[in-house]
Design a protein around this nucleic acid. Structure first.
Lengths: 114, 114
DNA sequence: CTAGTTTACGACTGGCGTAATGATT
DNA sequence: AATCATTACGCCAGTCGTAAACTAG
């Protein structure tokens, strides 16, 4: 996951030094992350030039997917949290009873049910 | 990432033992993964009953997102690999020249260009 | 020599497996 | 007692940071 975020940042900056700084890690650490990512995907995602970095076609493809996946996970995490808070506030509300999709046995341990 | 796959599998099986077996890890390892995942998301995703496990509303929301994200990453990895292979075979083909979206300087090191 | 990336290496953290503990029927 | 999940703990792989090495201009 961290590797994906690092890759996206690097693909935006096209410069290991700047990207590493923005990610609050050192340049070698970023280099290792990318190396490992490329090894996992088994594909060269970017080309190291002496005056910076450029994306390969595979890298561009991967960038789109990585961005989408990261955004999806962020949204999902947020949605789950919000869903939990909503259930929580409803559980504390004494006037509203349980609903079909939210039975008490999914919200409370059996021991602490009223 | 592994945690997401573990969670999805567990959500399908609703049983730590079976899910762990299918994931080829031990039950405690799976328990720890889920615990860390819930800590990261800061939300209870599933409720441990004595006769199995059940998803919370937040867990169901998270499950959908996790499934989508995992599938997206799988597809992306595959797509990147295929893109790389395609570029590779085209690079080896002497009759087809470079295209606008595939300039030589992204496919070859500067030193080994014709 | 400078700018930029990678390699080497010691140290730390995370995650797994085994074994023990807890809780419920 | 039996079943299912969690906690405790030792161990190994992964990852970080510092420092050294490599490459191209």
């Amino acid at each position: 996951m961290t590797r994906l975020r690092s890759f996206v940042r690097l693909a935006e900056e096209l410069h290991f030094g700047r990207a590493a700084k923005l990610l609050h890690i050192t340049q070698p650490a970023l280099s290792q992350q990318i190396a490992r990512l490329e090894k996992d995907v088994d594909t060269v995602l970017l080309l190291r030039g002496n005056r910076g970095v450029s994306l390969t076609p595979a890298g561009r493809v991967f960038l789109r997917g990585a961005r989408a996946a990261l955004q999806l996970m962020d949204e999902t995490t947020l949605a789950a949290r919000q869903r939990a808070s909503r259930a929580e506030s409803r559980r504390l509300c004494t006037t509203c009873g349980p609903r079909p999709d939210e039975p008490y046995d999914l919200l409370l341990p059996l021991t602490s049910r009223p």
